[in-house]
């Protein structure tokens, strides 16, 4: 019964997501949700690497920007078909992710975080300064919306919403399947202890690299979708400010949990939209929030919820066991 209700809940959520365009009063909400879905895809990417494999990457806004600029340049400057450009943008991001990961993953912990922070900054600076290619601070304008597939067009807010929603669901499904599989167990073994993972025969470098490349793929995909949705991009999308936003969505929602990225992104995007007056100063609240969360709820909202659920279950189930345990310790 337990699984049934959980499954039903998820189905209900999906149905709700699909019927949202009919319920929504105006395009504003659709726009906001579409945007948060796009961010969420990038956050799922970061989560796969930082949450499940244990490597805190601060370069992912850079990969997001690479995806966005690849799509933008391929469509605007090379006149490429949107869908082909989307595929190419993801491939370009993955290729760069592979090269960077190959080197970055030789470092660990603090070094990895600092290294990726610097890589992110280099990506940002290159986009900002290489005016011949990227138009620099002027930004890239006139990026086309997704081209039609047969009779399906993507020129309305609702159709774009559906497109992004389908991508998001696909990403969640992929992440879900990975973390539940032997591959996911392998990633988590690396997160837990890289030395131990090696002694049980896991090639840590190979696995870390696959996780890294896949996570850059998600970031690049999100970037490409962003470019075609907003139709305008500037170097700022690769800045550390965006990186910290993404990190915050992940941390508040719950790092290393499946639902965390979506929960955190939706919550914070909607919250900051409703606190418009705070826009510039929202970090006055979110900054301390991030710090407090990591101290008291290191696995975010989703993690806190699961702990609460588990505790409730344990209380009803293991009262007896608890007593036995205490006795055993005394004896």
């Amino acid at each position: 019964m337990k699984i049934l209700t959980k499954r039903n809940g998820i189905i209900a959520l999906i149905i709700f997501a699909f019927s949202f365009p009919f319920i929504a009063q105006n395009d504003y909400y659709l726009h906001m949700l579409t945007l948060s879905f796009i961010w969420a895809i990038a956050v799922y990417g970061i989560n796969l690497l930082s949450g499940y494999t244990g490597y805190l990457s601060l370069a992912h806004a850079g990969f997001f920007a690479i995806g966005a600029y690849s799509l933008g340049l391929l469509t605007v400057k090379a006149g490429m078909n949107f869908w082909l450009a989307l595929v190419c943008a993801c491939l370009i991001t993955c290729a760069l992710g592979f090269l960077i990961g190959l080197i970055a993953l030789r470092t660990k912990e603090h070094f990895f975080a600092i290294y990726t922070l610097c890589v992110g900054y280099i990506i940002y600076l290159v986009i900002d300064k290489w005016e011949g290619l990227t138009e620099g601070v002027r930004g890239l304008i006139g990026i086309p919306a997704p081209g039609n597939i047969g009779p399906i067009t993507f020129d309305t807010a609702a159709s774009q919403y559906y497109l992004v929603l389908i991508f998001l669901l696909a990403v969640i499904l992929i992440v879900y399947r990975i973390i539940r599989s032997l591959t996911g167990r392998t990633y988590m073994a690396i997160r837990n202890s890289e030395d131990l993972a090696q002694t049980i025969g896991i090639s840590t470098m190979k696995n870390k690299l696959t996780a890294f490349v896949l996570s850059t793929f998600f970031a690049g995909l999100a970037g490409a979708l962003y470019a075609s949705f907003i139709r305008f991009i500037g170097p700022d999308i690769g800045s550390t400010a965006i990186m910290f936003d993404l990190l915050m969505y992940l941390l508040v929602g719950g790092i290393g949990t499946l639902s965390g990225p979506l929960v955190g992104t939706l919550l914070l995007v909607i919250l900051s939209q409703n606190l418009q007056f705070l826009q510039e100063y929202r970090m006055l609240i979110f900054g301390p929030l991030l710090t407090v969360i990591i101290i008291f709820y290191p696995r975010g909202i989703a993690g806190a919820f699961f702990d609460w659920q588990r505790k409730r279950k344990d209380n009803t189930l293991s009262g007896v066991r608890g007593e036995l345990h205490i006795k055993a310790e005394e004896g």
Binding site: F244, Y281, G287, L290, T291
Partner: peptide
């Protein structure tokens, strides 16, 4: 988190 707060 502290960095973000102090800047804001």
């Amino acid at each position: 988190g502290i960095l973000l707060f102090l800047e804001a």
